[in-house]
């Protein structure tokens, strides 16, 4: 086996700036997206994900300019998500320089959108982002549901079934976030990660809960994730991407060094 497991730093971008909210409050400014992306690239990031959390649609064009600027200077894969609602949105982001576009709530409102987008641009460009929360009580069989609105609104959709359906509709990759763990820094929901990863035949990126480097390694070893995503541990320079890779390698995980 020689395909490396990927480490993906994630940047939340609002109005053209990198921000990191802790539990969606206390949004701290973490810098210029081009500068931050360049730093991650230099540290050896395998890919970079941008999530546009700009609240109003008036400012949607800002992310396009950010992607254009980053793509001129950073030559690794870029994924962009947040507010992607139409095939036109997908095309504009790809034309700006994104390699993959992540679709989240728009897929829940109208699953056929994923099919249309994959038909137009190819599955390899379409990531479906899944925000899941555990709904089974302790002692019960594991069950997770898809939530929207930052984890506040349940949809009644089973997460594993949803992942299988999205792959059938053309998703080329799944970005899986545990809404129970997001922002907690206590580690991935490994049961969730493994349940989804083992259920589908496309790569799965684990997200939500990373607080230290062991968490990243667990995501791969115990969660079977193909890639691991983290935001805050890299933003405030608690760890560099290079340190994360060294740690994963020391755990026996194949990474690009």
């Amino acid at each position: 086996m020689s395909l490396a497991k990927r480490i993906i730093p994630c940047l939340d971008v609002a109005n053209g700036r990198v921000v990191k909210g802790v539990q969606f409050v206390d949004i701290r400014d973490a810098g210029d997206p081009v500068e931050v992306a360049r730093r991650y690239d230099a540290e050896g990031a395998d890919e970079i994900t941008f999530l546009d959390i700009t609240a109003t649609s008036d400012d949607r064009d800002t992310i396009i300019h950010v992607v254009e600027q980053v793509a001129e200077q950073v030559f690794i894969p870029l994924t962009v998500g947040g507010g992607v609602r139409s095939v036109d949105d997908v095309r504009r982001l790809l034309n700006a320089g994104a390699d993959k576009v992540a679709i989240n709530s728009a897929a829940i409102f109208r699953p056929e959108f994923v099919k249309e987008a994959a038909d137009k641009v190819g599955s390899q460009c379409i990531v479906v982002a899944i925000d899941a929360k555990r709904v089974s009580a302790e002692g019960e069989a594991n069950k997770w549901e898809i939530f929207t609105h930052g984890g506040r609104k349940p949809t009644g959709i089973d997460a594993v079934e949803w992942a299988i359906k999205m792959v059938a509709f053309g998703a080329g990759e799944i970005l899986l976030t545990s809404m129970d763990r997001d922002g907690t820094k206590i580690g991935f929901d490994l049961d969730l990660t493994r349940a989804i990863t083992d259920a589908v035949n496309v790569p799965v990126i684990a997200s939500g809960g990373v607080g230290n480097l062991d968490h990243l390694a667990e995501g791969v070893i115990k969660g079977h994730a193909d890639a691991v995503l983290a935001a805050s541990i890299f933003h405030f320079a608690e760890y560099s991407v290079g340190e994360a890779k060294q740690h994963m390698a020391s755990c026996g995980i194949e990474v690009r060094l």
């Binding site: 086996m1 395909l3 990927r6 395998d46 589908v200 079977h224 193909d226 690009r256």
Partner: peptide
């Protein structure tokens, strides 16, 4: 499957030697 019996996903996506 790889040598540890984990599924090899398609597409082949990522950094390979």
């Amino acid at each position: 499957h790889d040598s540890e019996d984990l599924k090899l996903k398609v597409p082949h996506m990522g950094w390979n030697r």
